[in-house]
Amino acid sequence: MIEIAGLTKSFGPNQVLRGVNLTVQAGDSMVVIGGSGSGKSVLIKHIIGLLRPDAGMVLIDGTDISTLKDKELYEIRRKFGMLFQGAALFDSMSVWENVGFALLRSGMREREAKVVAIEKLRLVGLKDVEDKMPSELSGGMRKRVGLARAIAHNPEILLYDEPTTGLDPILADSINELIIRMREKMKVTSVAITHDMHSAYRIADRIAMLFEGRIVQEGTPDEIKNTSNDLVKQFITGSAQGPIKVEGISF
C-alpha cells in the first residue's frame, strides 16, 4: 500500500507540490492525470524516493521512505519497478543485459540471468531481440524492454511514467493491454501518470487528478467521467476553454 500525506516540494522559487494526499491500496491500479507541468513526474519520483520531500510523508507498506537512510532506501527500492517515459534503457548494454541488470547486480550467473531475461521479454511480447542493442529497436519495442527490465526482479509495485506518450494509438493501446496483463499476472500495485485519458480509463481502478500541486479529485473512472468539478471536466474533455488557463498563449 502506498500512502502519501501532505507532500510538498519546491525547486527554488517554484512550488511544484503543495500538499498532496493520496492512497493507493495494494493491488490497485492508480492513474494520476494532470497537465504538463502539474507535478506528476515529481510526484512519481517521490514514490520511489528519487526525490526527497520538503514536508510530508510517503509511506510504502507503512514505512516512511522520505526519512530513510540511503541503504534502507535502496533495500526498499527492490519492491519497485519503474517504466520511464523514454524507456531509459542503458545504451551501452544489449537488450538482455538491460533486462537482467538487477539480477546480474545481485549476483546471479550470466546464463541464468539471460534465461530469466528472455522469459520476461516473452512476457511483454518480445522474442529474438535479446542480443540486439537498444539503438536497434523501435520506440514501442524499447518501452516493452523497459517494462521487462522493470518486472525482472518481480516487484510488488510498478510505476509508469507516461507509458503511452509518443506512441501511435495502436501501439499505445498494446502498452495499455500489457499494463493490465502485468496487474493480472503479477498482482502488482501500480501507479501510472499520464495525460492520455483513453489510456487512463483503460488501465485505472482509480483516477486522481493533480492540478497546481494538489489532488483536486480522486475516484473510479466512472466517477471521474461524471465529475461535477470544472477543472476535471475541462481536462478529461480536453478543452482549451475553462478554468485551466493555457500559459503563454493569447488570441
Binding site: Y74, G86, F90, R149
Partner: peptide, 18 residues
C-alpha cells in the same frame, strides 16, 4: 550527461544501484 538527460541515471537508482 546523456545518461542523466535520458533518465538512465534515475533508472539505475530504481534498480537499486547507486
Amino acid at each position: 550527461g546523456t545518461m542523466r538527460v535520458t533518465e538512465q541515471i534515475d533508472a539505475l537508482e530504481t534498480l537499486a544501484v547507486k
